[in-house]
Structures are given as structure tokens and as C-alpha cells.
């Protein structure tokens, strides 16, 4: 964990040992992280892992119970938030205004000149946002967030419910911003998107349990891949045996599985299958973490 002196604005946003408690519930627990210019940082974790709460603390929308959140090296303030483009899950658009009017409003709010409607939204310039498809609304929310050329982009599940091509184009925009020097903090449930990030942060139960490259996040988790003609039967048999089963296409995978033990299970169920050890995925690491949480034990930190 890199620590910078308090005055250094080398990180666009940074949290230092930030915790947030709601009643008896630790929504965020001792999280230290940062985002620098030019990098795309992926924030991963299950529903309720504390991702959105952390984002809201970083933006200064809610205060931390303990610890310190910094924007541009200073405590978050309204003035500092001007250098941020934020797209919440709810998008934050006005349904009763047209595309052009939403853009106009955002531009005025950031003291920008009246913007022209981006080419891919031009057909809808005078359509009420409430009448647009979700994918189009997301593109507009992006366009609004980028209007004032923010130094830091914060995106909460930007591609949820969007078709593959639009998703690819949204990620093109994300990378263009990073290439132009902006920092991007993005949450996603989609592991193919996580791989497009320069750096990953994995949260579980409010804590930052891993960070770094995909390899770093996967940590010591291993995986075994099982190919069986009757993959559904193999899946059920291993599931019944209490293994952390996932699927990749029609291959059955077991996180932290012991190939020998798995072989015994499959033989007992008379399911012919090929078993081999393979590199684990981020999803498997998350599955292992979730299972650890369910039984109440402490998940391993890497």
C-alpha cells in the first residue's frame, strides 16, 4: 500500500483507513486505496460488499466514520467535485427534460459553453430522456459526465443491462479518457470488463481484500476444470459434495478444488470426466470469499 504525504495531489482520489459504520453494520471497514491520473481502476465485489458506500465517501457525499478520504489531495469539497465526472447507477438524468436540455443543464452547472449533442445521440436530441432506452440513457449520462473534461471519472456499474456492442463502445470511451490523462474508478460485475482495467480492487464484507493485477486479485485461489459430456450431472454431483462449483461455458469448474477428491466424487456418481488444474478466475476468488463469509470465517487477505 503506497502512502503519499498529505499535500501530494499525485492521486486524484485516495482513501486512508476509511471506515463507515451504519448502526452495527460495517459498510466499509478500514479501506485504503487510490486512483491516479491515466489509470482505469476496477472496483469489484459482491452486492453489499461496500463498493457504492466507498464511492460516496470518496466523493464526499457521506462522511467516513473514521479515516480520511481525499480528492486531489484535499478533503472532498464542492469545489473539488467540479473536477469529477460521476455516473451513479441511477444515472442522475432528468426524465422530463430532452437530451439537449439535460446536456444544457449539466453544461451550465459546470460553467461550460452550450454543448452540441454527440453524434451517436443526435437522432434523439429532442426526445425526453424518460422515453429513451436504457442503453441510450447511459450514453447520455456518460456524455453529461464528460462535458467538463473531468480529471476523475467515477462510474458505478456503467454497463449493466447494455448490449455487447454498446458496452464495447462505452469502454472505448473509458479508455480514451484514461489515455487523455483522466483517472477512472469503475465498478462492474462483468469479469471481461474487469480485465480491461489497469488495476483492480476487490472488496468483500466492507473490506478491501485484494488489489493489484488480475493475478494479484486471484491470489492463491486455484481452480480445477472438469469436462464431462453430461456436464449438468457433473455439476450437480460436485455441488452436492459441497464444492465451490462454477460454470464456464459447459465446463464445470471448482474453485480451490482438490483434483483427487473431485475425481472420487465423480467416480462415485459414475460420471466419466476429464479433470485438470487450471488458472483461477476473479469470479472464483469471489466465490471462495463468499463461501468463507457464509460460514463466518475470516476470508484470507492477500
Amino acid at each position: 500500500m503506497t502512502r503519499q504525504s498529505t499535500t501530494s495531489p499525485s492521486f486524484l482520489t485516495e482513501s486512508r483507513a476509511v471506515s463507515k459504520r451504519f448502526g452495527h453494520f460495517d459498510a466499509v471497514d478500514d479501506v485504503s486505496m487510490n486512483v491516479a491520473g491515466g489509470e482505469v481502476v476496477g472496483l469489484l465485489g459482491a452486492n453489499g460488499a461496500g463498493k457504492t458506500t466507498l464511492i460516496r465517501i470518496l466523493l464526499g457525499l457521506i462522511g467516513a466514520s473514521t479515516g480520511e478520504a481525499l480528492l486531489m489531495g484535499e478533503p472532498p469539497s464542492r469545489e473539488l467535485r467540479r473536477s469529477i465526472g460521476y455516473v451513479p447507477q441511477s444515472l442522475g438524468l432528468y426524465d422530463d427534460l430532452t437530451v439537449q436540455e439535460n446536456l444544457d443543464f449539466t453544461a451550465s452547472a459546470y460553467s461550460q459553453p452550450r454543448p452540441s449533442v454527440p453524434a451517436d445521440l443526435a437522432d434523439h436530441a429532442d426526445t425526453l430522456v424518460g422515453d429513451l432506452a436504457l442503453g441510450t440513457q447511459r450514453r447520455l449520462a456518460f456524455a453529461c459526465a464528460l462535458l467538463h473534461r473531468p480529471a476523475l471519472l467515477v462510474l458505478d456499474e456503467p454497463t449493466s443491462g447494455v448490449d455487447p456492442l454498446s458496452r464495447a463502445r462505452l469502454w472505448d470511451t473509458i479508455h480514451q479518457q484514461a489515455d487523455a490523462g483522466a483517472g477512472v474508478l469503475v465498478t462492474t460485475h462483468y469479469m471481461q470488463e474487469a480485465q480491461q482495467c489497469h488495476r483492480l480492487l476487490l472488496m468483500s464484507g466492507g473490506r478491501l481484500v485484494a488489489q493489484g493485477s488480475e493475478r494479484d486479485v486471484i491470489g492463491g485461489t486455484t481452480a480445477v476444470e472438469i469436462s464431462a459430456d453430461d456436464w449438468a450431472a457433473a455439476f450437480s454431483a460436485l455441488e452436492r459434495a459441497g464444492e465451490a462449483v462454477t460454470l464456464d461455458g459447459t465446463d464445470v469448474r471448482v474453485a480451490d478444488g482438490d483434483p483427487y477428491r473431485l475425481q472420487l466424487v465423480l467416480e462415485a456418481a459414475s460420471i466419466p470426466a476429464q479433470i485438470r488444474s487450471v488458472p483461477a478466475t476473479i469470479e472464483e476468488r469471489m466465490t471462495v470469499l463468499a463461501r468463507a463469509e457464509r460460514v463466518g470465517s475470516t476470508p484470507p487477505t492477500s
Partner: peptide
């Protein structure tokens, strides 16, 4: 300020 007022009027106009 002006933008905020304009936005509010526009929304109001559409909320029959």
C-alpha cells in the same frame, strides 16, 4: 443559478 431555474421550469412544463 439561471440554469437551475430554467431546468426546473422545463421539468414543470412537462409534468402536467
Amino acid at each position: 443559478m439561471r440554469a437551475m431555474i430554467l431546468k426546473e421550469f422545463r421539468e414543470l412544463r412537462r409534468d402536467r
